[in-house]
Simulated scan of single mutants.
Amino acid sequence: MPILYCDPWRAQYFQDVQCPDDATIPIKDWQAWSLFPNHSWIYDKLAVARSQGMDAAPHGVIPPYYPVFSKPIINLRNMGAGSLAIPDEATYRVSLQPGHFWSTLLTGRHVSTDAAILNGEIAWCRHATGITLDGGTFEHWHIHKEVMPELEGYLGTWASKHLAGYTGMTNFETIGGKIIEVHLRFTDQWPDLYGAGWVDAMVRLYSEKRWEFDDSQRQDQYSVVLWGSHGRSYRYPSAACTARVKAEPGVVSVQQTFHENLTPSLHSNPPGGFRLAIVNTNDLEAGRRALKILNEGILASSEQGDGSTRSSMVQLSSL
């Protein structure tokens, strides 16, 4: 299938979609980088910062003021890895890394925006904000019903200048209305929350170079995450447990986001936790109730498998 999903827990969103063989749709950044060479420069985060007139330079150039923010110039596997705020020159000098850069430390609302781009113009977009926990983890993502006209105007102006000739999905990460990252793909964690027919519309964007989607029924929705601790293995919950979760009112889909037979350290996760499951839902409290059920189910299966104790699970504040 030309939709290049890699994670088996995402297959549920794409496996029944009709996609022409000549329309290749990336899910991961490394796929998009190869598929769109004329626009792959956007993965250079230093270039993106400078395209907006932000102060930014490679490590080795001394910042004119502090604090600044530091991160790798390009990182296709885990875009946020290696990032940190630098408060002063002493910290900067001990933090110097080849391939990293510093830029203006932005403040304000952190928004993730999926956008359908038609020859450089935004034809559709939807915004999400994350509720953070410690160590780079998120308790949940809020996929907003609301439009954000000021942000959409800024992104539209930037896209028409820098993505001319590009047609496809794009994800923008912004803080305080400024772009910090651009991805030539959409967020594959919650395509089911964009509404019936959205994936088909996305396929038409790539295959027929047009955008047609009825977005009149949008509502506030949520993608809620269950985290475990690092340093141990996990097993999937029983089929009965998963069925119970899916039957919870308001639950749209369930993803079990790890491989039972893969060494835990080979999974890509933030320092704050090991991602075990995601529940997409129309109701935040329903999602949290579903996570409690999954929490107990994964604990029971994992303890049967290796005798680990319950204390190895991260107990989220919402559970």
Rank of each mutant, 00 (worst) to 15 (best):
P2V: 11
C6G: 03
C6Y: 07
R10H: 15
A11L: 09
C19H: 04
P20T: 03
D22V: 04
T24K: 09
I25M: 08
I25V: 12
P26N: 13
P26I: 11
W30D: 15
A32S: 15
W33V: 14
S34D: 11
S34P: 09
L35C: 06
H39G: 11
W41P: 02
D44I: 06
K45V: 11
L46R: 05
A49P: 03
D55W: 11
D55K: 05
A57W: 01
V61E: 13
Y65H: 15
V68E: 02
V68F: 02
P72K: 06
L76P: 12
L76M: 12
N78K: 12
M79L: 15
G80L: 11
A81W: 11
A85V: 14
T91K: 08
T91N: 11
S95T: 13
Q97I: 00
G99M: 06
F101V: 07
S103Y: 02
H110D: 11
A116N: 04
L118N: 05
N119H: 09
E121L: 11
I122S: 10
W124S: 07
R126W: 01
H127N: 15
H127R: 11
A128Y: 00
T129M: 10
I131M: 09
L133E: 14
L133P: 00
H144T: 05
H144E: 12
K145V: 01
K145Y: 10
E146A: 15
E150Y: 00
L151V: 11
E152F: 04
E152L: 00
Y154P: 01
L155G: 04
S160M: 10
H162E: 06
A164Y: 02
G168M: 04
N171C: 08
F172A: 01
F172W: 13
G177Q: 08
K178E: 09
I179F: 02
V182W: 00
L184W: 08
R185F: 08
F186L: 10
F186P: 00
Q189G: 10
P191I: 13
L193W: 01
A201E: 02
R204K: 13
L205D: 07
L205I: 13
S207Q: 14
K209C: 04
R210C: 15
F213K: 05
S216R: 10
S216K: 07
R218K: 10
Q219K: 07
Q219L: 03
V224D: 06
W227M: 10
G228T: 03
H230F: 06
H230I: 06
G231Q: 03
Y234G: 00
A239S: 15
T242L: 11
A243P: 00
V245T: 05
A247Y: 01
E248W: 00
P249D: 11
G250S: 14
V251E: 07
V252K: 09
T257Y: 07
F258E: 05
L262H: 03
N269S: 07
G272F: 01
R275V: 03
L276K: 09
L276G: 13
A277T: 01
L284H: 03
G287S: 10
R289K: 09
R289M: 02
A290N: 09
E303Q: 10
G305P: 01
D306A: 14
T309C: 12
S311E: 14
S318N: 13
